[in-house]
Design a protein around this nucleic acid. Structure first.
Length: 240
DNA sequence: AACTACCTCAACCGCGATAGC
DNA sequence: AGCTATCGCGGTTGAGGTAGT
């Protein structure tokens, strides 16, 4: 049983508590959080110690705003995993499940509210797939043009299921180290989805192709062709 | 400068799963 | 097998910061 809550300190952690926790984790490692809190002389629950460590103190945590690449990945992975924040966070090095959850709540849910639609509705799903995600993608593409056009060329009726998809990330001219990491992380998808890089595409035109997956086990395929002047969107016309 | 609204994110809570006895 | 302790996850809250008026 957790220790009686009235004995426990709550609220923000002090620098002294942080350094105690860090010190004792360096001595004994993570886990056995209640014992750790006790031996460290912290008047905190084991739960509180664990949370403080995982979400704030552990090394290699990334600070600052969620990048467009990370946002895109969160949206993609949410199609795949739903509200399984820790699962999504596994694919975002340096981000905790709390970070992902906070992003979803403060940005995505807020946007759904502004659009007056349910977060899980087909309408909002289409907004994510055909407006938000292309715009995030566009932010990753170096462009000399100040004007970036996003066109929509799809029919909801053409959304097909697809059990086995190759996902081509981009040409080498656009692949940054971060991009590579993100798309490689996607290769951890199961169910036959894999990622590959296509370096044969002309350097002025990039094919972005990804799949998503909803709660009804439907796969959706999407292609983006992007150049410096234009980002066009087309629904992949395949059904296997 | 003061007030308000909004945003961010750290931290808490409840609950289910798991481990250990 | 059953009980208890602990862990981990997802949902939620609220303090503090910031932008707008």
């Amino acid at each position: 049983m957790e220790q009686v809550s009235m004995e426990m300190k709550k609220g923000p952690w002090s620098p002294d508590e942080d350094s105690k926790l860090i010190h004792f984790i360096s001595l004994f490692g993570q886990g056995r959080w209640n014992s750790l809190a006790h031996v460290a002389g912290l008047k905190r629950s084991g739960k509180s110690c664990r949370l403080r460590w995982l979400n704030y103190l552990q090394p290699n945590l990334r600070r600052g705003k969620i990048t467009p690449q990370e946002q895109l990945l969160i949206l993609l992975l949410h199609f795949r995993f739903g509200n399984r924040w820790s699962k999504i966070a596994e694919n975002l090095p340096g981000r905790s499940d709390n970070d992902v959850k906070n992003y979803w709540r403060t940005k995505v849910q807020k946007h759904a509210k502004e659009l007056h639609c349910e977060i899980n509705s087909q309408q909002f799903r289409h907004f994510l797939l055909y407006q938000w995600m292309p715009s995030l993608l566009a932010q990753q593409i170096p462009t000399s043009s100040s004007e970036l056009i996003v066109t929509e060329n799809y029919s909801p009726n053409n959304i097909n299921t697809c059990p086995n998809i190759n996902v081509i990330s981009s040409t080498d001219s656009f692949v940054t180290e971060d991009d590579s990491n993100i798309w490689n992380n996607l290769s951890s998808f199961e169910d036959g989805i894999n990622i590959s890089h296509d370096f044969s595409t002309p350097s002025d035109m990039t094919l972005y192709n990804y799949s998503s997956h909803d709660e009804d086990d439907q796969y959706y395929c999407h292609n983006y062709w992007a150049s410096a002047e234009m980002l066009s969107l087309d629904e992949m016309d395949l059904w296997l």
